[in-house]
Amino acid sequence: MTQAHPHTFDHGAAPGRHEDHGTAGQGEILDLDAEVLAEHTVSLIGWLPLKSAPHRIVDLGCGTGAGTFALLDRFPEAHVTAVDASAGHLQRLREKACARGVEERVRTVLADLDGPALPDFGSPDLVWASASMHHMADPARVLRAVHDALAPGGLLALVELAGFPRFLPVSAPEDRPGLEERCHAVADRLHAEHLPHRGADWGPMLAAAGFTVEGERAVEVNIEGTRSEAVGRYALEGLRRIRGTVAGALPPEDIAALDRLLDTDGPYSILRRDDLVMRTERTAWAARRT
Protein backbone atom coordinates (compact mmCIF):
# COMPACT_ATOMS: atom_id res chain seq x y z
CA MET A 1 0.00 0.00 0.00
CA THR A 2 -1.21 1.91 0.08
CA GLN A 3 0.48 2.30 2.00
CA ALA A 4 -0.71 6.29 3.91
CA HIS A 5 -2.21 9.61 4.67
CA PRO A 6 -0.72 11.75 1.94
CA HIS A 7 -0.91 14.95 3.92
CA THR A 8 0.17 13.79 7.37
CA PHE A 9 2.88 11.53 8.68
CA ASP A 10 1.30 8.14 9.22
CA HIS A 11 2.96 5.31 11.05
CA GLY A 12 1.44 2.78 8.68
CA ALA A 13 3.24 4.03 5.59
CA ALA A 14 0.16 3.24 3.62
CA PRO A 15 -1.63 4.98 0.79
CA GLY A 16 -4.02 7.78 1.50
CA ARG A 17 -7.73 7.79 1.16
CA HIS A 18 -8.25 11.53 0.92
CA GLU A 19 -7.02 14.35 -1.30
CA ASP A 20 -3.69 14.29 -3.05
CA HIS A 21 -1.36 16.28 -0.75
CA GLY A 22 2.36 15.61 -0.42
CA THR A 23 2.30 12.90 -3.06
CA ALA A 24 5.98 13.02 -4.01
CA GLY A 25 7.28 12.60 -0.47
CA GLN A 26 4.72 9.96 0.39
CA GLY A 27 5.48 8.12 -2.84
CA GLU A 28 9.16 7.99 -1.89
CA ILE A 29 8.27 6.44 1.48
CA LEU A 30 6.01 3.87 -0.20
CA ASP A 31 8.69 2.95 -2.73
CA LEU A 32 11.27 2.50 0.03
CA ASP A 33 8.82 0.42 2.04
CA ALA A 34 8.26 -1.80 -0.99
CA GLU A 35 12.00 -2.21 -1.59
CA VAL A 36 12.95 -3.02 1.99
CA LEU A 37 9.97 -5.32 2.68
CA ALA A 38 9.92 -7.07 -0.69
CA GLU A 39 10.91 -10.48 0.69
CA HIS A 40 8.30 -10.28 3.44
CA THR A 41 5.59 -9.34 0.94
CA VAL A 42 6.47 -12.32 -1.26
CA SER A 43 6.39 -14.55 1.81
CA LEU A 44 2.93 -13.32 2.84
CA ILE A 45 1.55 -13.86 -0.65
CA GLY A 46 2.94 -17.39 -0.62
CA TRP A 47 1.23 -18.04 2.73
CA LEU A 48 -2.27 -17.21 1.47
CA PRO A 49 -4.64 -20.23 1.46
CA LEU A 50 -5.57 -19.91 -2.21
CA LYS A 51 -7.46 -22.81 -3.76
CA SER A 52 -6.23 -21.90 -7.23
CA ALA A 53 -4.21 -19.14 -8.86
CA PRO A 54 -6.34 -15.98 -8.98
CA HIS A 55 -6.97 -14.35 -12.34
CA ARG A 56 -8.78 -11.19 -11.21
CA ILE A 57 -7.11 -9.33 -8.35
CA VAL A 58 -7.90 -5.98 -6.72
CA ASP A 59 -5.16 -4.12 -4.85
CA LEU A 60 -7.22 -1.91 -2.53
CA GLY A 61 -5.26 1.15 -1.46
CA CYS A 62 -2.40 0.23 -3.77
CA GLY A 63 -0.14 3.21 -3.16
CA THR A 64 2.71 3.12 -5.66
CA GLY A 65 2.31 -0.59 -6.35
CA ALA A 66 4.23 -2.70 -3.83
CA GLY A 67 1.47 -5.30 -3.67
CA THR A 68 0.42 -4.90 -7.29
CA PHE A 69 3.80 -5.91 -8.72
CA ALA A 70 4.44 -8.66 -6.17
CA LEU A 71 1.06 -10.18 -7.09
CA LEU A 72 1.72 -9.86 -10.83
CA ASP A 73 5.07 -11.61 -10.36
CA ARG A 74 3.53 -14.40 -8.30
CA PHE A 75 0.54 -14.96 -10.61
CA PRO A 76 1.69 -14.46 -14.21
CA GLU A 77 -1.78 -15.06 -15.66
CA ALA A 78 -3.49 -12.53 -13.40
CA HIS A 79 -4.71 -9.01 -14.04
CA VAL A 80 -4.72 -6.47 -11.22
CA THR A 81 -7.06 -3.54 -10.65
CA ALA A 82 -5.05 -1.06 -8.59
CA VAL A 83 -7.21 1.32 -6.54
CA ASP A 84 -6.08 4.43 -4.68
CA ALA A 85 -7.27 7.92 -3.77
CA SER A 86 -4.03 9.52 -4.97
CA ALA A 87 -3.72 10.35 -8.65
CA GLY A 88 0.01 10.87 -8.13
CA HIS A 89 0.48 7.40 -6.70
CA LEU A 90 -1.46 5.84 -9.54
CA GLN A 91 0.61 7.73 -12.11
CA ARG A 92 3.77 6.44 -10.45
CA LEU A 93 2.35 2.92 -10.56
CA ARG A 94 1.47 3.19 -14.25
CA GLU A 95 4.99 4.37 -15.06
CA LYS A 96 6.42 1.36 -13.23
CA ALA A 97 4.03 -0.97 -15.06
CA CYS A 98 5.22 0.39 -18.41
CA ALA A 99 8.86 0.07 -17.39
CA ARG A 100 8.26 -3.56 -16.41
CA GLY A 101 6.27 -4.34 -19.55
CA VAL A 102 3.11 -5.34 -17.65
CA GLU A 103 0.92 -2.33 -18.41
CA GLU A 104 -1.64 -4.53 -20.21
CA ARG A 105 -2.16 -6.49 -16.99
CA VAL A 106 -2.82 -3.46 -14.79
CA ARG A 107 -5.88 -1.22 -14.58
CA THR A 108 -5.78 1.80 -12.27
CA VAL A 109 -8.86 3.23 -10.59
CA LEU A 110 -8.93 6.56 -8.76
CA ALA A 111 -11.42 6.23 -5.92
CA ASP A 112 -12.09 7.47 -2.41
CA LEU A 113 -12.79 4.28 -0.50
CA ASP A 114 -14.75 6.29 2.06
CA GLY A 115 -17.13 7.37 -0.70
CA PRO A 116 -20.74 6.20 -0.79
CA ALA A 117 -19.92 3.05 -2.76
CA LEU A 118 -16.91 1.13 -3.98
CA PRO A 119 -16.27 1.17 -7.73
CA ASP A 120 -17.44 -1.84 -9.70
CA PHE A 121 -14.49 -4.24 -9.72
CA GLY A 122 -16.36 -7.14 -11.28
CA SER A 123 -16.00 -10.26 -9.16
CA PRO A 124 -12.34 -10.56 -8.14
CA ASP A 125 -10.86 -13.82 -6.94
CA LEU A 126 -8.51 -12.01 -4.56
CA VAL A 127 -8.56 -8.61 -2.88
CA TRP A 128 -5.26 -7.44 -1.39
CA ALA A 129 -5.50 -4.64 1.18
CA SER A 130 -2.12 -3.83 2.69
CA ALA A 131 -1.72 -1.01 5.24
CA SER A 132 -4.82 0.70 3.88
CA MET A 133 -7.83 -0.52 5.85
CA HIS A 134 -6.91 1.33 9.05
CA HIS A 135 -7.31 4.60 7.15
CA MET A 136 -10.99 4.01 6.50
CA ALA A 137 -13.46 6.14 8.43
CA ASP A 138 -15.87 3.18 8.47
CA PRO A 139 -13.85 0.04 7.81
CA ALA A 140 -16.78 -2.22 8.68
CA ARG A 141 -18.73 -0.79 5.73
CA VAL A 142 -15.75 -1.22 3.40
CA LEU A 143 -15.23 -4.80 4.53
CA ARG A 144 -18.89 -5.62 3.84
CA ALA A 145 -18.59 -4.07 0.38
CA VAL A 146 -15.42 -6.07 -0.33
CA HIS A 147 -17.14 -9.25 0.85
CA ASP A 148 -20.07 -8.67 -1.51
CA ALA A 149 -17.77 -7.81 -4.43
CA LEU A 150 -15.65 -10.95 -4.17
CA ALA A 151 -16.47 -13.98 -6.25
CA PRO A 152 -17.92 -16.86 -4.18
CA GLY A 153 -14.98 -18.56 -2.52
CA GLY A 154 -12.81 -15.52 -3.14
CA LEU A 155 -10.21 -14.37 -0.64
CA LEU A 156 -9.43 -11.08 1.09
CA ALA A 157 -5.83 -10.66 2.24
CA LEU A 158 -5.67 -7.90 4.85
CA VAL A 159 -2.17 -6.87 5.95
CA GLU A 160 -1.40 -4.24 8.56
CA LEU A 161 1.75 -2.86 10.20
CA ALA A 162 1.90 -2.40 13.95
CA GLY A 163 3.17 1.13 13.37
CA PHE A 164 5.80 3.07 11.48
CA PRO A 165 9.11 1.18 11.62
CA ARG A 166 11.84 2.05 14.10
CA PHE A 167 15.45 2.26 12.97
CA LEU A 168 17.73 3.59 15.73
CA PRO A 169 18.97 1.72 18.79
CA VAL A 170 17.44 2.90 22.07
CA SER A 171 20.80 4.39 23.07
CA ALA A 172 20.84 6.70 20.03
CA PRO A 173 21.61 9.42 19.42
CA GLU A 174 24.30 9.48 22.05
CA ASP A 175 23.42 12.96 23.34
CA ARG A 176 19.62 12.32 23.36
CA PRO A 177 19.04 8.56 23.80
CA GLY A 178 15.51 7.37 23.11
CA LEU A 179 14.81 10.25 20.71
CA GLU A 180 13.11 8.15 18.05
CA GLU A 181 10.69 6.59 20.51
CA ARG A 182 9.79 10.00 21.95
CA CYS A 183 9.07 11.27 18.43
CA HIS A 184 6.73 8.38 17.75
CA ALA A 185 5.00 8.69 21.12
CA VAL A 186 4.13 12.31 20.34
CA ALA A 187 2.99 11.45 16.80
CA ASP A 188 0.86 8.59 18.13
CA ARG A 189 -0.98 10.96 20.47
CA LEU A 190 -1.51 13.51 17.72
CA HIS A 191 -2.85 10.97 15.25
CA ALA A 192 -4.89 8.75 17.59
CA GLU A 193 -8.09 10.62 16.79
CA HIS A 194 -7.57 10.36 13.03
CA LEU A 195 -6.41 6.71 12.93
CA PRO A 196 -8.47 4.93 15.60
CA HIS A 197 -8.27 1.57 13.80
CA ARG A 198 -4.49 1.36 13.55
CA GLY A 199 -3.30 -1.71 15.44
CA ALA A 200 -6.81 -3.20 15.56
CA ASP A 201 -7.62 -6.90 15.74
CA TRP A 202 -9.31 -7.30 12.38
CA GLY A 203 -10.49 -10.87 12.95
CA PRO A 204 -13.81 -9.97 14.64
CA MET A 205 -14.52 -7.22 12.09
CA LEU A 206 -13.90 -9.63 9.23
CA ALA A 207 -16.27 -12.17 10.77
CA ALA A 208 -18.92 -9.50 11.32
CA ALA A 209 -18.64 -8.56 7.63
CA GLY A 210 -19.50 -12.14 6.66
CA PHE A 211 -16.02 -13.55 6.06
CA THR A 212 -14.65 -16.83 7.30
CA VAL A 213 -11.19 -16.12 8.68
CA GLU A 214 -8.96 -18.97 7.53
CA GLY A 215 -5.62 -17.74 8.78
CA GLU A 216 -3.78 -15.11 10.77
CA ARG A 217 -0.04 -14.60 10.66
CA ALA A 218 2.17 -12.18 12.58
CA VAL A 219 5.65 -11.54 11.20
CA GLU A 220 8.39 -9.71 13.06
CA VAL A 221 10.62 -7.68 10.75
CA ASN A 222 14.26 -6.98 11.60
CA ILE A 223 16.33 -5.85 8.64
CA GLU A 224 19.84 -4.58 9.28
CA GLY A 225 20.89 -1.46 7.44
CA THR A 226 24.05 -3.21 6.27
CA ARG A 227 21.86 -5.48 4.12
CA SER A 228 20.34 -2.65 2.11
CA GLU A 229 21.19 1.02 1.74
CA ALA A 230 17.44 1.60 1.31
CA VAL A 231 17.07 1.11 5.08
CA GLY A 232 19.04 4.31 5.72
CA ARG A 233 17.08 6.25 3.11
CA TYR A 234 13.82 4.96 4.60
CA ALA A 235 14.91 6.08 8.08
CA LEU A 236 15.89 9.50 6.73
CA GLU A 237 12.64 10.10 4.84
CA GLY A 238 10.55 8.83 7.74
CA LEU A 239 12.22 11.07 10.30
CA ARG A 240 12.01 14.04 7.94
CA ARG A 241 8.26 13.62 7.74
CA ILE A 242 7.78 13.02 11.44
CA ARG A 243 9.72 16.16 12.30
CA GLY A 244 7.01 18.31 10.77
CA THR A 245 4.43 16.61 12.96
CA VAL A 246 6.22 16.68 16.32
CA ALA A 247 8.29 19.88 16.12
CA GLY A 248 5.98 21.88 18.39
CA ALA A 249 5.62 19.16 21.01
CA LEU A 250 9.22 18.15 21.75
CA PRO A 251 11.84 20.06 23.76
CA PRO A 252 14.37 22.11 21.76
CA GLU A 253 17.16 19.69 22.66
CA ASP A 254 15.28 16.85 20.95
CA ILE A 255 14.58 18.91 17.84
CA ALA A 256 18.26 19.91 17.63
CA ALA A 257 19.33 16.27 17.92
CA LEU A 258 16.78 15.29 15.29
CA ASP A 259 18.07 17.98 12.95
CA ARG A 260 21.60 16.67 13.33
CA LEU A 261 20.40 13.23 12.25
CA LEU A 262 18.61 14.75 9.25
CA ASP A 263 21.60 16.82 8.10
CA THR A 264 22.92 14.57 5.36
CA ASP A 265 26.08 16.67 5.04
CA GLY A 266 26.85 16.64 8.75
CA PRO A 267 28.94 14.19 10.77
CA TYR A 268 25.89 12.89 12.69
CA SER A 269 23.72 12.14 9.65
CA ILE A 270 21.56 9.07 10.02
CA LEU A 271 22.99 7.93 6.68
CA ARG A 272 26.43 7.65 8.28
CA ARG A 273 25.30 5.26 10.99
CA ASP A 274 26.14 1.56 10.77
CA ASP A 275 23.76 0.47 13.52
CA LEU A 276 20.40 0.98 11.79
CA VAL A 277 17.89 -1.87 11.93
CA MET A 278 14.40 -1.63 10.48
CA ARG A 279 12.09 -3.02 13.14
CA THR A 280 8.36 -3.49 12.78
CA GLU A 281 5.65 -6.14 12.80
CA ARG A 282 3.18 -7.08 10.10
CA THR A 283 0.02 -9.06 10.71
CA ALA A 284 -1.97 -10.66 7.92
CA TRP A 285 -5.48 -12.09 7.90
CA ALA A 286 -6.79 -14.39 5.17
CA ALA A 287 -10.57 -14.19 5.00
CA ARG A 288 -12.82 -16.05 2.55
CA ARG A 289 -16.23 -15.30 1.15
CA THR A 290 -18.02 -18.61 1.57
Rank of each mutant, 00 (worst) to 15 (best):
L50N: 07
M278I: 01
L179G: 06
F75C: 06
R100W: 01
A117T: 09
C62L: 01
S228E: 05
E220K: 14
P252K: 08
L60Q: 09
Q26F: 10
A286D: 09
K96N: 07
L261T: 13
R243S: 13
A34T: 08
D59F: 03
V277W: 01
Y268E: 15
S43P: 03
L143K: 10
R92N: 14
L126M: 13
E35Q: 14
A78K: 03
E39G: 05
R273P: 06
V219L: 12
A111R: 01
P252N: 08
D33W: 04
G25C: 04
A187Y: 01
H135Q: 04
S269V: 10
R289S: 04
R279M: 06
F9H: 03
D175K: 05
Y234Q: 13
E174Y: 03
H40E: 12
A247K: 06
A151F: 05
G203I: 00
A97Q: 11
R166P: 02
P173A: 04
L155A: 05
I242Y: 02
D73W: 02
A111K: 03
D188R: 10
S86F: 15
A131M: 02
V102M: 04
P119H: 13
L44Q: 14
L206F: 01
D33C: 12
G244Y: 02
L143S: 11
E193Q: 05
A70F: 01
E229R: 15
